[in-house]
Design a binder for these strands. Structure first.
Lengths: 195, 195
DNA sequence: ATAGAAAATCTAGCAACGCTATAATGGATG
DNA sequence: CATCCATTATAGCGTTGCTAGATTTTCTAT
């Protein structure tokens, strides 16, 4: 029983292995989704990809939906960071434009990731008390853009988000031609800076 | 061979039967989707619902996706009509508001229908030359709101659509609380009328 | 009216899916 | 080294979208 030292080492190594494999699974899922679409991200396919049997995946995530949800959370994290970077790098008056560009760039460069965050059926509500902090973080970046500048900053941030999401989604699903994208950004920025 | 008369009657009846059954299938699909979600709209379930075997559905629509696409087209038709009605019933200066309300009302009252139109993976592009007229019709209603009032009416209409779609989608997927919806409409209308 | 052609419909089954009970295997502990 | 316990694999269940082939029904033509 005096070997709590070695025992800890072993436990740590096991934990690292677990996390490494978890990351491996998520990486494989994202790669397949981005290249071949989410329907091709099957549990069997993933278990092939990581050279483990299917039950291992269920030990990690409980269900296929659990895997997609984990990827979505990663996505929200990354989106939040991208928006934060864009906002902090720019001057006060051009912040809205920078953030808009960063948002649409994110959605355009990782369409499958964006899809799993918003378009697939999984339930990742925001208002609930158990909302992961990664999700709040992204929206807080939008909120800060209007904080103080207007009485109804929250509604403005929501609408700004809705506009960007609408553009991203209608572009991703081929409803908007990609050609006029720059002009769309210009006008939406105009709308949200003149208020 | 002189009976082209009776032959025509028979052909007509068969056509009517076909269309009636087609409508029956779509009605069943929409009902199940609205009550239990699209994953529960299986081909077997539908074949049960209309008391025909599965291959009959494939004779009509070719695939499950074909059924969903047909429902989506119905949805675009109905959305277009709703927007047209809203626009024509209102005065010039309140048209934007009426259309915005009609759009969000449509999305909120038939969430599954709205979902299949926009959120599910099916490919119903707009720009393509084979785009069904039902799809163009809906957007033309939005376009007319800004026609003539601004040089870049098309971009404005696209952004108005994107904003409404973003609100509808973020509300449907529980990202927005339904409580502030009225205020959102007020502000979005403000944004798009002051330009 | 009835036999034969054609159209419509059903039965039965395949491959692939998400998921899980159970068996086999491996590493840590005394 | 023996024994446990955690980890991993095998194998299978029920359901899915879809389809080939058998079967029945409907129309046509004598």
């Amino acid at each position: 029983m005096a070997e709590t030292l070695a025992t800890n080492r072993i436990a740590e190594r096991k934990l690292r292995d677990r996390q490494a494999r978890r990351a491996q699974i998520l990486r494989a899922a994202r790669k397949i989704a981005e290249l071949e679409g989410w329907p091709n991200v099957t549990v069997r396919r993933l278990s092939d990809e990581i050279s483990y049997s299917q039950p291992v995946l269920y030990a990690h995530f409980g269900s296929r939906e659990g895997i997609l949800t984990a990827v979505a959370v990663e996505g929200f994290q990354e989106l939040g960071l991208a928006l934060e970077k864009a906002r902090k790098r720019s001057k006060r008056e051009s912040a809205v434009e920078s953030v808009a560009e960063a948002y649409l760039e994110f959605a355009a460069s990782s369409p499958a990731l964006y899809e799993v965050m918003f378009s697939l059926g999984l339930s990742v509500p925001f208002g609930a008390p158990d909302t992961p902090p990664e999700l709040r973080f992204g929206f807080s970046q939008l909120l800060e853009l209007f904080e103080g500048r207007d009485a109804k900053a929250e509604v403005l941030a929501e609408l700004f988000w809705a506009s960007l999401h609408g553009i991203a989604e209608l572009t991703r699903t081929k409803r908007f031609p990609r050609s006029r994208q720059k002009e769309r950004v210009r006008v939406v920025v105009e709308l949200f800076t003149r208020s």
